[in-house]
Design a protein around this nucleic acid. Structure first.
Lengths: 231, 231
DNA sequence: TTGGCCGTATGATATTTATCATGGAATTGT
DNA sequence: ACAATTCCATGATAAATATCATACGGCCAA
């Protein structure tokens, strides 16, 4: 274990237990030998829609947004991805080009594995293949179900949904810095920027949240959950 | 080839070339020996939300809808699946229960493979594993992108989108029988039944489509494409 | 330092969409 | 054959949401 960690210089990498549970030391070392770690600052574009898929992208730290341009020039955000959650799994195996862009919305650290290496590992190690399929499946399910949840809600519910997503799922804290602009939130939940701002203001006036610029404080979590659920 | 077909009684099965391109005759025979074909009539429920995932479901003929119940009791349709396109791939590998229902919207023929058999095949045959991952990936991508397309459109665009989906992608004909009720269309594209009906009526009045009950005729396809795209 | 751009904010108004009400046609169950 | 239910249809109205206008602060580049 320990010597492996050192060789890999990935001592703290959670991928080992998540993706590589059924991968031997030798196999892991082979994959790790061709990995590239890249750090990105908030706002940096990691992948642009249409880019050739070069490697198997994996998020170690930070937050990313996946977005695409609509034919009428607007942006839509597919999902926010957090570490170990998902990254370029989607469409990596089915397309030769990314059909969405990936942008860091907070300082992030990614790890890129050689794609052929991962493919070889799938071919040679059936248990890894199953793990990968499961992860891929989970990720897709999550995106689809989340998108359906947002779709069925009204403005207030959608904004509440996003706030609770960051508070409960990402930061696990009632106080946090919104990593998205109001405009990006609008692109994520499919409404206008003005209405996102307005809704946030209403929540503030009703004493449900506190706002200081991007700093949000969830004051009445129950109420917010109720709004997210029933409107 | 021929003797295999006979043993499998699957002479016409397209799965052979799609999923099983890299599967040996022996392996294929093993999987086929434990398959079950089931026919469903229009409206029959194949899987209910919450059902234990028993096998690997595959659609040979017909059309299915995948739907889920929202917490406030309404239905949402995730996608319409057609033969060789997808079926129970989604979430089969990541959950022990279906988180959506599957219903035949036209007479359909499904094929159920033993799940452990498929898992074994993934483990033993890496090329099959890659094919499966690709198929799974394609399917998810399609659902997600389609859902984003619908999301960005207004009522008219959404209804046009659905009509063109059936006309162009499914039936490949300007005249077809709508396999969905107006209510189901509404559940699919996220609007009310009344507005679906109203929009269809408007299209009819404008000479874009013809309507006789469920029989739709696309009269002005260019116009419909334009509406689908730009509103 | 200043001018321009972007993000945030709020109000007034227009548009889009949902809800409510009603009725006829078609289908289902008994 | 009948009531009962669901589907299709349309109009009137209410509610939700988008658009347009305006303003203010911060930030960056010239």
């Amino acid at each position: 274990m320990d010597e492996l960690s050192e060789k890999c210089t990935c001592a703290e990498c959670h991928m080992r237990t998540l993706f590589f549970a059924h991968v031997s030391k030798d196999e892991l070392q082979k994959v790790c030998s061709l990995k590239t770690e890249v750090a990105y600052g908030k706002g940096d574009v990691i992948v642009k829609e249409g880019d050739k898929i070069g490697g198997f992208l994996y998020l170690q730290k930070g937050l990313l947004k996946l977005s695409r341009k609509t034919s009428d020039g607007r942006d839509q955000i597919l999902c926010i991805s957090k570490p170990f959650d998902f990254v370029s799994l989607l469409s990596v195996f089915s397309a030769s080009e990314f059909n969405y862009s990936v942008t860091a919305i907070s300082d992030s650290l990614t790890c890129v594995l050689d794609f052929n290496m991962v493919k070889d590992l799938v071919k040679e190690n059936g248990s890894f293949a199953l793990d990968l399929i499961q992860k891929l499946s989970e990720t897709s399910d999550q995106i689809i179900l989340n998108s359906l949840e947002i779709k069925r809600k009204h403005l207030h519910g959608r904004v509440a949904h996003v706030l609770l997503f960051f508070s409960d799922d990402i930061y696990k804290s009632a106080v946090f810095e919104l990593p998205l602009s109001r405009k990006e939130i609008a692109e994520y939940i499919g409404m206008t920027t003005e209405n996102v701002i307005r809704t946030l203001s209403e929540f503030r006036k009703d004493g449900i949240i506190g706002i200081e610029g991007k700093r949000i404080t969830i004051i009445d979590s129950d109420r917010l959950h109720s709004i997210s659920e029933h409107g």
